Amino acid sequence: MAPFRDALDLLDTIPGINQATAEVIIAETGGDMTRFASAKHFTSWAGACPGHHESAGRTKNTKARPGNPYLKGALGLAAFGAVRTKDTYLAARYRRLTARRGPLRALVAVEHSIITAIWHMLTTHKPYAELGGSYFTQRDTERATRRAITQLNQLGYTVTLNPMETTA
């Protein structure tokens, strides 16, 4: 694995990916992302994209695509480790999706996020940029505020909002 030391160090920056998982990813992909036209092509080849079936104009969810079983196994372990990290984007994504879709589908979505990040990292040779666990609340603060107010109202409280004074 000596010729792939730079790629291994890049992959090690993703939460949930350890040295052994990074070695499996490099061994299965070759570390060269030029053979894949885009991240979507790479996730499809790996079998980490969601299944899609359309019949008579109706879209139905199906199982994930078949792909490289060794890579899928490594991604599953990486996703399982990533969702147990604290204050990371991947863990926040898992918690957010688990409520609606269930734990297994949310885990496949985290695998998809990881493999998309891998393609971008190995293409641009830049380390993983962690967005943080509060990414989704910071992205749409008004939505988070409405949700918190609604929850407090359901508990029987009346809420009055006063904006904080900022000192500059």
Rank of each mutant, 00 (worst) to 15 (best):
M1D: 13
M1L: 04
A2C: 00
A2D: 10
P3C: 00
P3W: 08
R5M: 09
R5G: 06
A7G: 01
L8T: 01
D9P: 04
D9M: 09
T13C: 06
T13F: 06
I14T: 11
P15H: 11
P15R: 09
P15T: 05
N18L: 04
A20C: 03
T21G: 01
A22C: 03
E23M: 13
V24Q: 09
I25A: 11
A27S: 15
T29N: 05
T29E: 11
D32V: 02
M33R: 06
M33D: 07
S38D: 14
A39C: 05
S44A: 11
W45E: 05
A48W: 03
P50H: 08
H53W: 10
H53S: 13
S55T: 03
G57F: 04
T59G: 09
T59D: 15
N61K: 14
N61G: 13
K63V: 14
A64L: 13
A64T: 15
R65K: 13
P66G: 01
G76W: 12
L77K: 07
F80K: 07
G81H: 14
A82R: 10
T85D: 01
T88G: 04
L90Q: 08
R93E: 15
R96C: 07
A99N: 09
A99M: 10
G102P: 05
R105I: 07
L107W: 05
A109V: 07
V110H: 07
E111V: 07
E111H: 02
S113V: 04
T116V: 12
T116S: 15
I118V: 15
W119E: 08
W119G: 05
L122M: 11
T123W: 11
T124I: 11
K126E: 15
K126R: 15
P127D: 11
Y128R: 12
Y128S: 06
A129R: 15
L131C: 03
G133F: 00
S134M: 08
S134E: 13
F136P: 01
T137D: 11
T141V: 06
E142A: 14
R143E: 01
R143I: 02
R143H: 11
R146V: 00
R146E: 07
A148W: 03
L152C: 02
N153H: 07
N153S: 00
G156S: 00
Y157A: 01
T158F: 02
T158I: 05
T158G: 01
V159H: 03
L161Q: 09
M164D: 14
A168D: 10
A168Y: 10
A168T: 10
